[in-house]
Design a protein around this nucleic acid. Structure first.
Length: 430
RNA sequence: GGAGAGGUGGCUGAGUGGACGAAAGCGGCUUCCUGCUAAGAAGUUGUCCGGCCUAAAACUGGACCGUGGGUUCGAAUCCCACCCUCUCCGCCA
């Protein structure tokens, strides 16, 4: 959520920033409502002040046994007017929220301006020397995964619905090894591992920006007001909501494995094959709560921490910076990691590392007490995938495919396989 | 799921219609004092939203005693609904 005071004081600058995302965005209506609202607030407070004074007099009269009927009547009328103004004010507040809650974050000054993902900027590429590792006839991850008997796309659909799959045998073990490997890597770098709830309430969803705009993208419980987490970002970022942390507690680094559940509404027909776009997938997430002055550099190191996973696995990737039009709702600046998928010869998103500045902190009420001013101050939040596990598994199936139906196990994962070096065929399902 | 108790400031905890933003204690901060890894004295101490102001502070108005409604001239206090916590019973990985 944007700061209403910033909007009030410099609507032109806010508009200019927002229009880099989308020319249709503007805070003009918010400003108009804000003016009305403040007018009403002023009136209301004036009346309340009067009522407080008069009520005190009523009490005084009654205590001394005098008649207060006239004064009571007068005060009652003021009460009626307060109620009327309150109603009007609430209407305006509701309309303003309706607008404000749907306005995305402003792109940072560093974010390149663009009109579509075409304008995203390649920052760097890594691991070109590993690109020739797969054999000449490399096949798609779903193909080799199915043939090896470690991916079962049909039975997943049978027990759930389309876009659900089953990982079997050595595939499941590989998925589990990846989760462990990632968590180990991150905790060694100082991230605290947390296992959060996989279901969260609407307030948490609002805090990180999924609600109200993206309600259709989430799975929702039928009998409880709870959503299945679309990413660990939601429970983990909200852990300290409505608290005022000490400045010494910052920065807070957390990493969490969770399954992620997304309805993928509106993406019908896109990436329907394989593990790329499932309703349920595993992800290890990195979350940082930091002092505002450090968030820019914390963002850079966050990206590096995500990159370390792919570097350890020796899988080629590139880092791109999202342009203003491609930024997520809450982000001010974002770098994506795209992993090399040799079967199709394309880079595929595998991580998204964002700096939200105080946008989420304001929604979730995440504060720390600043030493210099002594005031409660919004902190900055950042998060990044470290990494999407299913897509990493897919990348391994292609990048480590060395012959027909032969997939090697990356060195760093071999300890999780009793030092086995190659995925074995799973007889049970094939 | 059943029965009961309860949600007040950083913490403990008083407050059953008006002088309560809220006693007291603890903690924190400031100053003073004491020749010693500590004790004592005094003062101070929340959050949010407006106004004022170039801005901050100060000042000033308002709101906040789990949340949302209601009653009343006036609600921490009375009424209703919801949420949460604790205890006992039941069920259960």
């Amino acid at each position: 959520m944007l700061d209403i005071r910033l909007i009030r004081n410099d609507a032109a600058a806010v508009n200019a920033a927002l229009k880099r995302r989308n020319p249709d965005l503007s805070v003009d209506d918010v400003v108009a409502l804000d003016e009305q609202w403040r007018q009403l607030l002023h009136e209301e407070e004036e009346l309340r002040s009067q009522r407080n004074a008069l009520s005190k007099q009523v009490g005084e009269l009654k205590r001394t046994g005098q008649n207060a009927d006239e004064l009571q009547e007068k005060t009652r009328l003021i009460g009626d007017r307060i109620k009327a103004i309150e109603t009007e004010k609430e209407t305006i507040e509701a309309r303003q929220k309706e607008l404000l809650h749907f306005i995305p974050n402003m792109p940072s000054e560093h974010t390149p301006t663009g009109t579509s993902e075409e304008d995203n900027v390649v920052v760097r590429t890594w691991g070109d020397e590993y690109k020739d590792r797969p054999w000449s006839g490399v096949t798609d991850h779903w193909d080799v995964g199915t043939k090896l008997g470690i991916l079962d796309f049909e039975r997943g659909v049978k027990v759930a619905q389309s876009r659900f799959s089953v990982i079997v045998g050595q595939g499941a073990r590989l998925e589990r090894a990846l989760i462990n490997y990632m968590l180990e890597l991150h905790t060694q770098k100082g991230y605290t591992e947390v296992i959060p709830p996989f279901l969260v309430n609407p307030s948490a969803m609002f805090g990180t920006g999924q609600l109200p705009k993206f309600e259709q993208d989430m799975f929702q419980c039928k009998d409880d007001p709870l959503f299945l987490v679309p990413t660990a970002e939601v429970p983990v970022t909200n852990l300290y909501s409505d608290e005022i942390l000490d400045e010494e507690q910052l920065p807070i680094y957390m990493t969490a494995y969770t399954p992620c559940f997304r309805r993928e509404a509106g993406s019908a027909g896109k990436d329907t094959r394989g593990l790329i776009r499932q309703h349920q997938f595993n992800k290890v997430e990195l979350v940082k709560l930091v002092h505002p002055e450090t968030s820019a550099q914390e963002h850079m190191s966050l990206v590096e921490d995500a990159e370390a996973v792919l570097q350890g696995l020796k899988i080629p990737y590139r880092v791109i910076e999202l342009c203003s039009a491609d930024l997520g709702f809450s982000a001010a600046r974002c770098f994506d990691l795209e992993v090399w998928m040799p079967a199709q010869g394309v880079y595929r998103e595998i991580s998204s590392c964002s700096n939200f500045l105080d946008f989420q902190a304001r929604r979730a009420n995440l504060k720390f007490r600043a030493k210099d001013t002594g005031r409660p101050t919004f902190l900055h939040t950042l998060n990044g995938s470290g990494l999407a596990v299913g897509r990493t598994l897919a990348a391994i199936l292609e990048n480590y495919q060395v012959a027909e139906n032969t997939v090697r196990i990356p060195e760093v994962l071999q300890p999780y396989f009793g030092n086995q070096t190659e995925l074995a065929l799973h007889e049970c399902i094939v």
